[in-house]
Amino acid sequence: MAHHRIFGTSFASIYALYVQKVERKDHTKAEVDQVISWLTGYDEAGLQQAIASEVDFETFFAEAPAMNPNAVLIKGVICGHRVEEIEDPLMQKIRYLDKLVDEVARGKKMATILRGSDPTAVRP
């Protein structure tokens, strides 16, 4: 299995770019946090801890409390690749997150982004 450079990249550095991207399109950090929480199960404190400790992407996903089983419903192209066809499990999780953030930036409704989940519901 190839070890991609992104795996060792600090989650905090990419998180800042995600926030910048959505804010340029008049969306919020809270929306980014919401999709991250939906995908990974991190609560606000856990997410802030991951950012503060500057864990890499590999660690961020390895320590994710609970990947959302509906993540498999995320379809489409990101960075020239269909997310549903990416074979490396870690790369697929990273691209799922990229796709969700893109959808926030494009202004999709949160219920659609969260694949039909109630956007106000809090995951355990």
Rank of each mutant, 00 (worst) to 15 (best):
S117F: 03
L114S: 08
V72K: 14
D33W: 01
A105W: 01
D56S: 09
V72T: 12
G46Q: 05
I86K: 00
S37M: 12
G41W: 03
D26Y: 06
K93E: 11
D118E: 03
I6V: 15
Q92K: 13
R123S: 15
A71I: 00
F61M: 07
C79L: 15
T112G: 09
E63P: 00
Q20V: 13
K99H: 11
T112N: 07
Q34E: 11
K99T: 15
G80S: 08
T112D: 12
R95N: 14
I113R: 03
Q20W: 02
G76C: 14
R5L: 15
A50P: 04
D102G: 05
Q49W: 03
P119D: 08
R24V: 04
Y15H: 14
K93D: 01
V19T: 12
I113C: 12
I6Q: 09
Y15G: 10
T120I: 06
Y18E: 04
A111T: 07
A16M: 00
K99N: 12
C79S: 15
I36W: 00
S117W: 03
E84F: 00
P69R: 06
M110N: 08
Q92M: 09
E58Y: 05
A105M: 04
K21D: 12
Q34P: 04
E63V: 02
V19M: 11
I51C: 06
Y42I: 05
V104I: 10
Y42R: 01
Y15K: 15
M91D: 11
M110S: 10
G116C: 08
V55W: 02
G41A: 14
V22Y: 01
E31W: 02
K21V: 07
R24I: 05
F7S: 08
A71K: 06
G80K: 04
E58K: 15
V122N: 02
D26F: 06
L100I: 04
I6Y: 08
I74D: 00
E58I: 12
K29F: 07
G116P: 05
A30D: 14
A111W: 00
I113H: 02
F11P: 09
A30K: 11
P69L: 13
A62W: 00
A62K: 13
Q20F: 10
E31K: 14
R123T: 15
V83S: 09
A64L: 11
G8W: 03
P124G: 09
A64F: 06
E87W: 00
A66M: 13
